[in-house]
Design a binder for these strands. Structure first.
Lengths: 104, 104
DNA sequence: CGATGACATAAGCATACACTTATGTGATGC
DNA sequence: GCATCACATAAGTGTATGCTTATGTCATCG
């Protein structure tokens, strides 16, 4: 996976909204569609992109497929962000030392 | 600016590479092109996108325009990431309390 | 068993977008 | 002045991608 792929997954406003909704609580694909004007295949395709990016993971539950935020994707972004800590504004300087611990 | 715009700016591999290069040290548009097979207008357009996303800022220096990483863009991503700290893996749990300080 | 429901995949289409060539703008130097 | 350099903008083009409709797959239920 190219590093820009995870950003590409979040670049689409619809996909971004889906991720935000999932972050508020895990649910299945049908529940995700509620309140959004989006077709079933479109939702399925977006979820596949988010899953391939490591931002979301799925779990079969009978006929339903439950989706939830995958911490690994967020960790990837966190590690990416840590690379540029030299440029962070001073008011978050306190983070510098702790992010160092994340670098393995 | 829609929140997904900053991710859209980093979604393109070429633009991502430009940002990474700038993070290694500020330089002008011509210097950025060295080592990359990219036309001058393409570079200019990419830099405009990165600037509009708040990831990069410019400073006129005579005929040259010096570009550098804009900490505001990274801070935006950091604040975004902080919203989902509930999902971060346990090994970065130590970050939780500090990121709370960033929430204004 | 067949019917239905939840979701995935296929194929086609329309728009977005990253590129190109050409031209414009603004600063330095002769 | 005008030639040149560094960069921005305009306009056009090909491809990527997000959508659609149609169909496939898999599990539950009667």
């Amino acid at each position: 996976m190219i590093e820009s792929d995870i950003f590409k997954a979040l670049a689409d406003p619809t996909r971004y909204a889906i991720f935000e909704k999932l972050a508020a609580g895990s649910m299945n694909a049908s529940a995700l569609r509620e309140g959004m004007t989006i077709s079933q295949p479109a939702m399925s395709q977006h979820l596949a992109v988010l899953r391939n990016a490591g931002l979301v993971r799925e779990e079969r539950q009978g006929r339903f497929v439950n989706y939830e935020v995958d911490p690994e994707g967020l960790a990837l972004i966190a590690r990416w962000l840590a690379k540029y800590r030299a440029y962070w504004p001073s008011r978050v300087d306190a983070l510098k030392s702790l992010l160092k611990d994340m670098d393995q």
